[in-house]
Write a protein that binds this DNA or RNA. Structure first.
Length: 565
RNA sequence: CGCGAGGUGGAGAAGUGGUAUCUCGUUGGGCUCAUAACCCAAAGGUCGCAGGUUCGAGUCCUGCUCUCGCUACCA
């Protein structure tokens, strides 16, 4: 909380630009990353919060083909949509880039070449299926044939959905290209590989020993599972036309495999940001005092805890992640969120249905975040959390205090000469919150942190009920001044401590209460000098409105109607 | 199959050896400043099942069972 500034490089998983963003993405990655980054800034730490659209890979070229548009048109569309959703939800990236930008192409190729020149890759020539009509090599998913095990038709190149067997493409009988329906031929192709197996001991020591206790058990457990199965070498190149060309002589038509270049996108995005802001990017990636934190979903653990760290290790002078607080998954109304079945709450639709209520969704997704296990988002819970926690506890408390201050003092905050012991005690209690919430956030316990915040409002409500200023106003008006001063102090704490979680609410409150001068949590120590005791609070805006049953019913119906199942 | 994570009062979650905690919901009471909100109290759990270790286990060990993930273009 105090002392020297620390430096953080915070990354959030690059969203894949072939679809919009839904609540699962927000809950699992972007909200925690945003809370963490905002918090670090508020305690005067140096933060680079980095992200960008992931715009390469087969999935994008295939979908573009399906829609008869170019991949570029597709990624432009979704990059815009995603960017817009993040902005409206207040995800405070310092830089949001795109992997299709030149700076990333250049950066990825430089790093690829660096490793290639150091001879850290191995290369192999293998035979792969090639579609002579479409003139391209075929990814496993684009080959169908007869399953060699159960003889089902239409088994994919990597798996038979009928019997569940994992296959390799050369086992398939009667292989057929799904692109042209022609029979593919086997053709030689050369690829570069990272020998992950050479780094098994490094990963084992680093994660399962060094970080045994400070990383989440689901993360270390997953890593251990990969290690136990043995790491295998993985190709870093692919035969594709959509991606970053490797430009090696005699090897035309090869691009970097997305999993290799996407995490490098974090570095590229940092470089882009540093150029714009005249900063030294290398401090954020090469200074060992910098703490690198990757926010991801659990499906990405292997890339961020094994593969990318190995790449960083191979490069040599880069820092390794300080922590990778991966979250589990969020379900929706008891079912897995599914893009293809349209079982999701899309952010751009939420923004239309619940205008100016971003903080409500941020709150619900934080308080019920899938931190330790998969969780369920239901519209009913969304309503309940809003109505009984944000409206009844938080909003109501603020409203109660301000109403009384306006009523009794014309909106001028009372400034009593002294406080009695019980009042001092309440203030002391409030003063403990920055520390305890900060501790929770340092440990990536976002649910615990936001629950503390609401508890502060609970303390406020209880304080009012116990001290009953509306009864004392006639008999002991001096005491009432104390009480409402204390109530006001609690609101100030609430306001400032809300900033990482509920930025829009905090902003509203700050301007309403003339607290704009308070820029970080250390200022709370000298709160009394920052409070405006002269001008009066005029309006009291309702912070959170109640959500009615019919709004919720409409959402549930919409979900069922729109989903194709 | 294997590996990983999880299974705690009606719902959602804390809790890693010592009288089972919190929020919501329910019931009763109080208050009336407040967005029919707030405050207090009570009821409600043999902590997935079965063994074991221990003076003592939700917490450690073994076996079993269920859910999710690793295993689709969904973080």
């Amino acid at each position: 909380m105090s002392g020297k500034n620390k430096r953080f490089t915070v990354t959030a998983a690059l969203p894949y630009a072939n679809g919009p963003i839904h609540i699962g993405h927000l809950a699992g990655v972007y909200i925690p990353a945003d809370i963490f980054s905002r918090y670090q800034r508020l305690i005067n730490n140096d933060v680079a919060f980095i992200c960008g659209s992931d715009e390469h890979g087969v999935a994008i070229s295939l979908q573009a083909r399906k829609e008869s548009i170019t991949p570029k048109e597709l990624i432009d569309r979704y990059d815009k949509l995603i960017r817009d959703s993040f902005e409206k939800f207040g995800i405070s990236f310092d830089n949001y880039s795109r992997t299709s930008r030149e700076i990333h192409h250049k950066n990825s190729i430089e790093l690829f070449n660096e490793l290639n020149e150091k001879d850290l890759f191995s290369s192999k020539t293998t035979k792969q299926y090639y579609d002579t009509e479409a003139e391209q090599f075929l990814a496993d998913r684009y080959i169908i044939g007869t399953c060699p095990i159960c003889d089902a038709e239409n088994a994919y190149g990597d798996q038979c959905e009928n019997c569940g067997s994992t296959l390799s493409t050369d086992e398939l009988k009667n292989p057929k290209s799904t692109i042209s329906n022609s029979k593919p031929i086997l053709k030689d192709t050369k690829h570069w590989y990272i020998n992950l197996n050479e780094f098994e001991d490094f990963i084992k020591d680093w994660i399962t020993k060094e970080h045994k206790d400070d990383w989440k058990p689901n993360v270390t457990g997953q890593v251990k599972s990969w290690l136990d199965n043995g790491l295998k070498s993985r190709a870093v190149t692919r035969d594709l036309d959509w991606g970053i060309p490797i430009n090696v002589e005699g090897e035309e038509g090869k691009v970097l495999y997305v999993w290799f270049e996407a995490p490098i996108g974090y570095i590229s995005s940092t470089k882009e940001w540093a150029e714009k802001n005249k900063k030294d990017w290398s401090k954020y990636w090469k200074d060992e005092n910098t703490k690198l934190v990757h926010f991801i979903g659990k499906d990405n653990i292997v890339f961020h805890c094994i593969i990318f760290p190995i790449i960083l290790k191979m490069l040599g002078d880069y820092i390794l992640p300080f922590n990778v607080p991966a979250n589990e998954f969020l379900n929706l109304e008891g079912r897995k969120i599914s893009t293809s079945r349209n079982w999701a709450v899309w952010l751009h639709e939420y923004l239309e249905d619940f205008p100016n209520m971003q903080d409500v969704l941020r709150y619900v997704l934080t308080v019920n975040a899938p931190e330790t296990k998969d969780n369920d988002f239901t519209w009913k819970e969304f309503q309940m959390r809003n109505n009984s926690e944000l409206v009844a506890i938080y909003g109501n408390f603020v409203n109660r205090v301000l109403t009384l201050i306006i009523k009794y003092y014309n909106g001028i905050v009372p400034n009593p000469d002294s406080l009695d012991n019980s009042n001092k005690k309440i203030i002391e209690q409030a003063k403990g919150f920055p520390k305890s919430i900060g501790k929770s956030l340092d440990e990536f316990k976002f649910r615990e942190a936001i629950k503390s915040l609401v508890n502060l409002a609970r303390i406020g409500n209880k304080y009012l009920a116990d001290s009953e200023p509306w009864k004392l106003q006639k008999s002991n008006p001096e005491k009432v001044k104390e009480i409402l001063y204390v109530g006001y102090i609690i609101i100030c704490y609430l306001t400032i401590l809300s900033e990482p979680f509920l930025p829009n609410t905090a902003k509203k409150l700050k301007s309403q209460l003339n607290l704009e001068e308070i820029k970080n949590w250390n200022d709370l120590d000298s709160l009394n000098t920052k409070i405006d005791f002269s001008s009066n609070i005029e309006s009291k805006e309702v912070l959170f409105r109640k959500i009615e049953d019919d709004e919720i019913i409409r959402q549930i119906e919409k979900l069922k109607k729109m989903s194709n199942q």
